[in-house]
Design a protein around this nucleic acid. Structure first.
Length: 806
DNA sequence: AGCTAAAATGTTTTT
DNA sequence: CATTTTAGCT
């Protein structure tokens, strides 16, 4: 008997048993193939994260053991016999034995996992944490977004590329301000050249690693100006010791390209590189991962070309489509079994995406049953749509015992979220909106952050200008301009000019006020160290708080609360760092502010319906999903032209939206919609109307009388025409059982709601206790007017509000 | 300098 | 429509 062959055979069978218990054969292959380039085409819901986590923990525990075909020292016949016995043992025992025969585990710090969101990175760390029961181990893995990983590298080596420690990150808003400044300086009329175009062009250039010098002047006369702006903008960023989002990637690439020792250090350090959501990487990110992984060539990328939805941000699907050309020796694994959705939902998704050309052919399948049909709802307008969604959710919570957190409402554009929010607010159903205006967008929060930025980076002229006269310190535009000019002339930062204001005759009149500001900043710095203390100190000693309280007491109070929230966010950050055994720093906190998005903070445990864009929903899943605003022109959007590429991207977006649903999917559209102050007529989206097979759909009967005019301007046969004319006659006769029943039985009585008389004391989940002022029957429901003890009076629908008699 | 009131302007999607 | 920018006034 050949001991070596026998050992290898038994070893693999043992691994197959351990991992086969929780993974399918393809997933196992993705886990075990650690050496060399690996492309994992992971369809929606195919257990991608599970594979990533298992692969990392496999690597840390066993290195490349599965495909390692050497015989470890000390393995003899007895060992092989012992291992054979282990084959029949429970998996947990095999897992205990296995490491003893494995010679090459991999230290966790040698693993780099790049994810798309901080949330995904955190999930990986958490799951590794519970797998190993060792927080430190999970922490020493580098897991994060492209931006956070790059930032970590840049903080260490930024001097090499001409940046000072403590450099600032500029968000889109800062970028815009700075660009406008550049254009003004170059005397480029923003009427003639839209700053947004410039911003987009520069961003795309950076995504493609094109520097100002290399920016090509084309026949387009604007390109000359854009190049000039780009050059000045880049110069100003450096002067301010600041980077925009794109710089974070671009500068890391140039660091690694130009500094051989740094490059080699990381190439050596990272034995295994894993990249999630590879279909959404841009050229710069492609180069970056290639650079880092070129040392060991152990690069694994996971993605789904059908879910590439960030073209507008420079993502190129080609990265994933051509992976096997970049790495000809790449192993390709396809994950096509979906563990998330019912067959009906998957069939719809497959049908829609099937209309796209240019993709890796694959077909998702699911072992779960057909499930419910997809419900399509034609609403008369956006309010009707909102009410419908709320009503369905409430009904489902009552009848099926679902939790609010089981539901998600997705839409193409944030603007659509407003009308839906209104419906939720009226009903009292708890909900959470992800994205749109985050609280970091509030002026007072931005101001506080600007103060912190200046404290961390005195070269940051942009942010300095933001706060120099906020609150008012009698430093006017004339003075600021003078300081700015002196700074340019003397090669100094504005801050240092202000520090020495007395030396400049030009500033004679304002010198006292300028140095007072500098003294103020210095005193803040002396008195506080931690981010939370710094904010508190800034808030009080700059007089910002008093300013807020002096203005509108209601508005001011809200703003003060926002600042308080920022302070507690800082405290949270500090606690988190201390827990991880790290030192909380101002820079660290600022990074968090800029890089941690709203979705990252989404908490699936809070019992609330979640509202967000389809983009934000990527990577998430929900038992019940509503896709709202499924209208031509909105979804698919016509904002980016009607080109095939644009439409394909919209279709992928629809695919992402559909595949978020596990059990039940609703699609709704409004016949007319108020947007930007005018009413527009809508037609159902082709994705719903033409591309999803009819047999998967059930069309819902409108709950309200449709408006006199149909979408096409024909008089609708109002009362009788209860079904969208766009859907086939045959379907009208046979609406799904659920569709019929739910609509018909939706009365107050069926929800077990009794009509409460005025004067009754009631309790509400959110508003607290109060007294019923009036009650009125409304379409099988009861509308109450309730005066709450807090002093507010609300109008509430009985079925929605869940009032409790007390 | 700083306020108010009128006018303009814009809304994909995001790290 | 809603917010932001600007002009004009004090």
């Amino acid at each position: 008997m050949d001991i070596k062959q026998e050992f290898l055979r038994v070893k693999r069978r043992l691994f197959d048993r351990v991992y086969g218990e929780r993974l399918n054969p393809e997933q196992c292959r993705a886990v075990f193939t650690t050496e060399g380039p690996l492309l994992v085409l992971a369809g929606a819901g195919s257990g991608k994260t599970t594979v990533l986590v298992n692969r990392i923990s496999y690597i840390i525990k066993y290195g490349d053991a599965y495909f390692d075909d050497t015989l470890p020292d000390g393995v003899d016949e007895n060992t092989v016999e012992a291992l054979k016995l282990a084959l029949d043992m429970p998996v947990s025992e095999i897992e205990e034995i296995l490491p003893r025969f494995i010679s090459r585990p991999c230290p966790p710090w040698a693993v780099l996992a790049i994810t798309f969101t901080n949330k995904a990175a955190k999930e990986i760390r958490d799951r590794l944490n519970s797998a190993f029961g060792d927080g430190e181990l999970a922490e020493s893995i580098w897991a994060g977004t492209f931006h956070s990983v790059c930032l970590r590298i840049l903080r260490k080596h930024c001097e090499r590329i001409g940046y000072k420690q403590g450099f600032t990150i500029y968000d889109t808003d800062d970028t815009k301000r700075l660009l406008l400044q550049c254009m003004k300086e170059l005397m480029i009329d923003e009427k003639r050249l839209n700053p947004k175009v410039v911003q987009g062009e520069i961003s795309r250039a950076k995504d493609s690693l094109i520097y100002p010098d290399g920016y090509e002047i084309t026949r387009d006369p604007r390109s000359k100006d854009i190049k000039a702006v780009y050059g000045l903008y880049a110069k100003k960023l450096r002067e301010n010791n600041a980077m925009d989002f794109d710089d974070i990637i671009m500068h890391t690439v140039s660091l690694l390209e130009n500094e051989a020792d740094v490059r080699e250090y990381y190439q050596n350090k990272f034995r295994y590189v894993l990249v999630d959501e590879y279909q959404d990487t841009n050229y710069a990110q492609f180069v970056l991962t290639k650079l880092i992984a070129d040392g060991r060539r152990n690069i694994m990328v996971v993605g789904d070309d059908d879910q590439s939805i960030y073209r507008f941000r420079g993502a190129t699907v080609e990265n994933i489509l051509n992976f096997d050309k970049t790495y000809p020796d790449a192993t390709v694994v396809k994950l096509e079994q979906n563990y998330r959705s019912t067959t009906n939902i998957l069939s719809a998704a497959n049908a829609v995406i099937g209309n796209n050309m240019k993709r890796h052919r694959k077909k998702l399948w699911s072992a779960s049953g057909d499930g419910e049909k997809i419900t399509v709802k034609e609403a008369s307008d956006q309010n009707d749509e909102g009410r419908y969604i709320v009503e369905r959710i409430v009904g489902s919570v009552y009848r099926e015992g679902r939790k609010y957190s089981d539901f998600a409402v997705l839409y193409r554009v944030n603007a659509l979220g407003r009308s839906i929010q209104t419906a939720f607010t009226k009903s009292g159903v708890p909900y959470k909106v992800i994205g749109d205006m985050g609280f970091y967008d509030h002026k007072e929060v931005k101001d506080m952050v600007a103060y912190l930025s200046v404290l961390a980076n005195l070269d940051d002229n942009l942010r300095l200008k933001r706060i120099i006269n906020e609150p008012k310190r009698k430093i006017g535009t004339a003075t600021i301009e003078a300081v700015e000019q002196l700074a340019v002339m003397n090669g100094l930062s504005m801050y240092s000019v202000m520090e020495r204001a007395g030396e400049f005759p030009l500033l004679a009149k304002s010198a006292e006020r300028l140095t007072a500001f500098v003294r103020l900043m210095e005193s803040v710095r002396e008195r506080a160290k931690l981010p939370s203390e710094l904010i508190e100190e800034v808030f009080v000693s700059t007089g910002y708080r008093d300013m807020l309280l002096e203005e509108d007491p209601v508005v001011g109070e809200g703003r003060r609360e926002n600042v308080e929230e920022l302070i507690s966010a800082a405290r949270e950050y500090e606690d988190k760092m201390r827990e991880g055994g790290e030192e909380p720093t101002l820079l660290g906190f600022l990074e968090e502010v800029y890089l941690v998005s709203d979705v990252d903070k989404y908490d699936e445990n809070a019992d609330a319906v979640v509202l967000m864009t389809v983009h934000a929903a990527k990577g998430l899943e929900f038992p019940v999903v509503f896709i709202a605003g499924m209208e031509e022109g909105i979804f698919p959007s016509d904002k980016d032209g009607e080109s095939e590429d644009a439409l394909s991207e919209e279709r992928r977006l629809a695919y992402v939206a559909i595949t978020r649903a596990k059990e039940k999917l609703y699609i709704s559209y409004a016949r007319q919609r108020m947007m930007y102050g005018r009413t527009i007529l809508g037609r159902p989206s082709r994705f719903a109307k033409d591309e999803i097979p009819k047999e998967l759909l059930s069309v819902d009967i409108p709950r309200t009388v449709p408006p006199r005019m149909s979408a096409y301007g024909h008089p609708a046969a109002s009362a009788r025409s209860t079904v969208a004319p766009e859907f086939s006659r045959e379907m009208r006769r046979a609406p799904s059982v659920t569709g019929m029943k739910e609509t018909r039985t939706r009365t107050a009585a069926s929800f077990g709601v009794e009509k409460l008389a005025p004067g009754t004391r009631v309790k509400h989940g959110i508003f607290g206790e109060g007294e019923i002022i009036s009650s009125r029957d409304m379409g099988g429901d009861v509308l109450y007017e309730v005066g709450f003890d807090s002093g507010s009076v609300k109008k509430l629908m009985a079925t929605y509000a869940k009032l409790e008699k007390i």
